[in-house]
Write a protein that binds this DNA or RNA. Structure first.
Ligand SMILES: [Mn+2]
Ligand SMILES: [Mn+2]
Ligand SMILES: [Zn+2]
Ligand SMILES: [Zn+2]
Lengths: 151, 151
DNA sequence: TCTTTATGGATAATAGTTATCTTTTAGTAA
DNA sequence: TTACTAAAAGATAACTATTATCCATAAAGA
């Protein structure tokens, strides 16, 4: 399989679990639940949304546990955080590396986007600015097809 | 002058002032100070940094006034807000339209970057997703040349 | 100068996230 | 299986950039 290609939910779950085990982090039911949700989600859920799903299975779970698990996975590069200044941050557990997103300003939907012509930009930036680029963030804001019809 | 080309500080100041006057907003000393600072700055200052500069001239100025002026200018598309989830937002009064930035993860410096190959991306995204794109945000994170030498 | 009302100044409120502290439990070895 | 211990969970306080509120002030026009 090519690098950065999308994997199945089960693949990603196992990948994250293996990473935790290999680094001797404890495997708790709460962590497993967060891992399952992140691996399965396609819609870039918020911490609150993850929290609500975990609570269905484990009603005593604390929101702090969700945040602590997210911080842990971020540090292991197993989840991509899409931070927003207003409103809440969103998370991508399927593709935990920088990639373009399209964000609907109507309904808040966030989708992945492929862009072939993005590859050369890092090098172009390095040559012009001298920066050693570590990562990037590319968001397109607009109206999704559903919101175009209703607005 | 070509569209989106950089203007002198005086040009931008006058442009913002004309916009406020044409819409019958009141011209106050505090607003003039914020306009001057935004028009002259090349370093994407934070609200706090603008506040400190305004206070040199008008020591009784409130931070709320800075924020209210920024909100006003944002609504008139006369300043570009670079929102960050952690830490404070930064503002560009010289180029109040979306454009790429390089951000130093060492010292926090934010610089403008030119990218010719960015032009076609919006159309490519529209064709693939059906979104009607309104604006975008492109950030490259890395180490500036100074920070590369000291880290 | 007078009047009107937008704006300034001071401060309270907001909200997502993080820190703190106590209790519980996962992992391990006897 | 049981006991031990460090790590993680749960509850809640703290944090902080920004926004809202409210009254005082002053810009703009007559
Ligand atoms: Mn994504
Ligand atoms: Mn800029
Ligand atoms: Zn939508
Ligand atoms: Zn730097």
């Amino acid at each position: 399989m090519a690098l950065n290609e999308s994997k199945t939910s089960a693949d990603r779950f196992q990948q994250m679990l293996d990473k935790l085990k290999s680094l001797d982090f404890r495997i708790t039911p709460q962590r497993l639940a967060v891992l399952r949700i992140l691996a399965a989600s396609e819609d870039h859920p918020s911490a609150e949304q993850i929290f609500e799903k975990v609570r269905i299975e484990f009603p005593t779970t604390s929101l702090a546990t969700i945040y602590k698990t997210i911080v842990l996975l971020k540090g292991l590069n197993e989840v991509l955080e899409l931070g927003f200044p207003d409103g809440c941050n969103r998370y991508d557990g399927n593709r935990p590396f920088p990639h373009p997103h399209v964000i609907c300003t109507g309904c808040g939907k966030i989708m992945d986007a492929e862009l072939k012509s993005l590859d050369g930009l890092k090098e172009e930036i390095h040559k012009k600015t001298g920066f050693r680029i570590q990562h990037h963030r590319l968001d397109f804001f607009g109206l999704c097809q559903e919101c175009q019809e209703t607005m």
